[in-house]
């Protein structure tokens, strides 16, 4: 499959659009790639001054965000079919405040933030779709917050381990505990 088809398919899945729209192909044009990344490499790092919106065709990984108080926490997981970026930098400018590391080999595409913003300015119909895209990511965030607060933690750990086999090899117990919103001792007990 070519870049247009791969990224358009990703947008169809995100927006729930019944078909590949012409503007999806136009959007894919702002991306460069495919870029092949070996396992263990970073897509981006804290302090980088140039931000990209990434589309992941293949590969798994994690991103960690550096908070204002100096704490670095596990922010999200990278999976095929996802659009990922350093959100804070995309929204508010400035250097990147997160890292994204891949733990398998990956195939990705990337678009400069400036290209993304210009595309959105020019494409009124695509802007109207942003609410569907945003709602998709928002319901994932809501679910994470709700699971963190209310889901049985043994079940949550079991589901996470099934979704990301080997997560404990790539993230420390402290990081996973913060991701789950539990103490380190509770996490230790769950992981036994």
């Amino acid at each position: 499959m070519d870049k247009k088809t791969i990224i358009s398919n990703g947008l169809v899945a995100l927006t729930g659009s019944p078909e590949k729209l012409a503007m999806f192909s136009e959007f894919s044009e702002i991306f460069e790639g495919p870029i092949y990344v070996e396992a263990g490499n970073k897509l981006w790092s804290v302090g980088n001054d140039e931000g990209y919106l990434w589309f992941v065709q293949k590969g798994y990984g994690f991103d960690r965000i550096l908070l204002e108080d100096g704490t670095k926490i596990l922010n999200g997981m990278t999976e095929p079919g996802m659009f990922i970026c350093d959100e804070k930098s995309l929204l508010m400018g400035g250097n990147l405040v997160s890292d994204s590391i891949l733990y398998t080999e990956a195939v990705v595409y990337r678009a400069r933030y400036s290209a993304y913003r210009q595309f959105m300015r020019d494409q009124e119909h695509f802007r109207a779709l942003l609410i569907s895209i945003s709602a998709h990511f928002l319901q994932l965030r809501k679910l994470r917050l709700l699971k963190m607060k209310h889901m049985n933690k043994a079940d949550y750990w079991s589901a996470t381990r099934n979704r990301f086999p080997g997560i404990e090899k790539f993230c420390s117990q402290t990081e996973i505990a913060k991701y789950f919103g539990v103490s380190k001792s509770t996490m230790h007990r769950l992981m036994k």
Binding site: L67, I73, E87, R127, L130, I133, K142, F180
Partner: peptide
């Protein structure tokens, strides 16, 4: 229009971080 769609999602990351660091 561009910013507000992204900000709605970004806001939730803040709620997650508050609980995740030290509930």
């Amino acid at each position: 229009e561009i910013q507000s769609s992204l900000l709605s999602t970004y806001q939730y990351q803040g709620y997650i971080n508050k609980f995740g660091i030290d509930r």
